[in-house]
């Protein structure tokens, strides 16, 4: 892939990508119906089928969240009743500060995913652009070390954080900062590998051209490479954000006080205690919890979709 010519530098990648789409659409302004079905129509059928499969349990949750009575199992008639009662209850329960959990989750998710993207990109750049001893073994080890079942290492993590808390109280147990650090321990690994693959698709000739212009490695990385790999950064950011916001085992071991909980732990408590389960409110909380992830996906989608090399290799 390194035989491609250096990239022109007149417009950002995603701009050109959407140009490409527009041109593609313009190229075939009209199609015969038969051809439309063969080339486009069936895609709608497949898309619809998958969407139904993907969303029917979630539609069910949405329905349950709008139903003022009932359980997750007992409300089989979708949208039998519609009321925002559960949402009101969710947000007004002072014993379970949902809004606080929401903020906590966003803070942990955003900080972790930004830092993960940054750390991962740094490492991927080194693996992709530099040659050093231990490079292959290093990359492989990064993938392997993350296969340790963290659920069973949670005791060690707990004791480590207890010790860390003795030195730096703000990083110890029951601290969001500490939790973020634990998550960042996993910043390298699969993410690095994903990025590494994408970094490799950026032609080395770009680096070389910049180097001839007198740019140092740091400048090449921060001003040229990062921009060209924006789509993969978006993907990693999204994956990391999703992974972090739904993580349960470690956070429930480390976080204890009600004000410090994340959505995953807090919501689980709506259904984990036999004597105080409240499925409809749980459903309402789960629906709201999914919104930021969907919003982030929508926002990042143009990066994810705007192909990387599709733009740069024209």
């Amino acid at each position: 892939m390194s035989t491609t010519p250096p990239i022109p530098t007149d417009a950002p990648a995603q701009q050109r990508a959407s140009d490409a789409e527009r041109i593609a659409r313009l190229r075939q302004p009209r199609m015969r119906p038969g051809r439309w079905i063969a080339e486009i129509g069936w895609r709608h059928v497949v898309g619809l089928a998958v969407v139904v499969f993907a969303t029917f349990p979630l539609v069910y949750v949405l329905s349950a969240s709008l139903n003022p009575t009932g359980t997750l199992t007992g409300s089989n008639v979708l949208f039998r009743e519609i009321s925002v009662e559960n949402y009101v209850e969710l947000l007004s329960d002072t014993r379970r500060p949902y809004a606080r959990w929401f903020v906590n989750t966003m803070v942990v998710g955003v900080v972790t995913s930004l830092a993960t993207v940054f750390l991962g990109a740094l490492a991927a750049y080194a693996f992709s652009r530099m040659r050093f001893t231990g490079r292959r073994v290093g990359l492989l080890s990064l993938l392997l070390v993350q296969m340790f079942p963290q659920l069973l290492a949670v005791v060690a993590i707990y004791l480590l954080m207890q010790g860390l808390g003795d030195v730096f109280p703000i990083l110890g147990l029951d601290s969001l900062a500490g939790l973020i650090l634990v998550y960042l321990g996993g910043a390298l690994g699969v993410n690095t590998y994903l990025m590494y693959g994408f970094f490799n698709t950026v032609p080395a000739s770009i680096d070389e051209a910049a180097k001839i212009d007198g740019a140092g490695h740091a400048r090449i990385f921060f001003t040229i490479i990062l921009r060209l790999v924006a789509p993969i950064l978006a993907v990693i950011g999204l994956l990391s954000f999703i992974g972090t916001t739904s993580e349960f085992v470690i956070s429930s071991a480390l976080l204890t006080s009600p004000d410090n909980l994340t959505l995953a732990i807090g919501l689980f408590r709506y259904v984990s205690e036999e004597t105080s389960t409240n499925y409809p409110v749980f459903a309402a909380g789960a629906v709201l919890a999914a919104i930021p992830v969907v919003a982030l996906f929508l926002y990042l989608q143009r990066y994810i979709v705007a192909g990387l090399t599709a733009g740069s290799v024209k």
């Binding site: 009575t69 359980t71 199992t73 007992g74 036999e274 004597t275 105080s276 389960t277």
Partner: peptide, 23 residues
């Protein structure tokens, strides 16, 4: 019939009896 279904069904008048606690 899970705990939740039992509660919900009894509350809906679907059975004359249930075995449960004060909660």
């Amino acid at each position: 019939i899970s705990q939740d279904i039992a509660k919900e069904q009894f509350a809906a008048g679907a059975s004359p009896y249930t075995i449960t606690g004060p909660w």
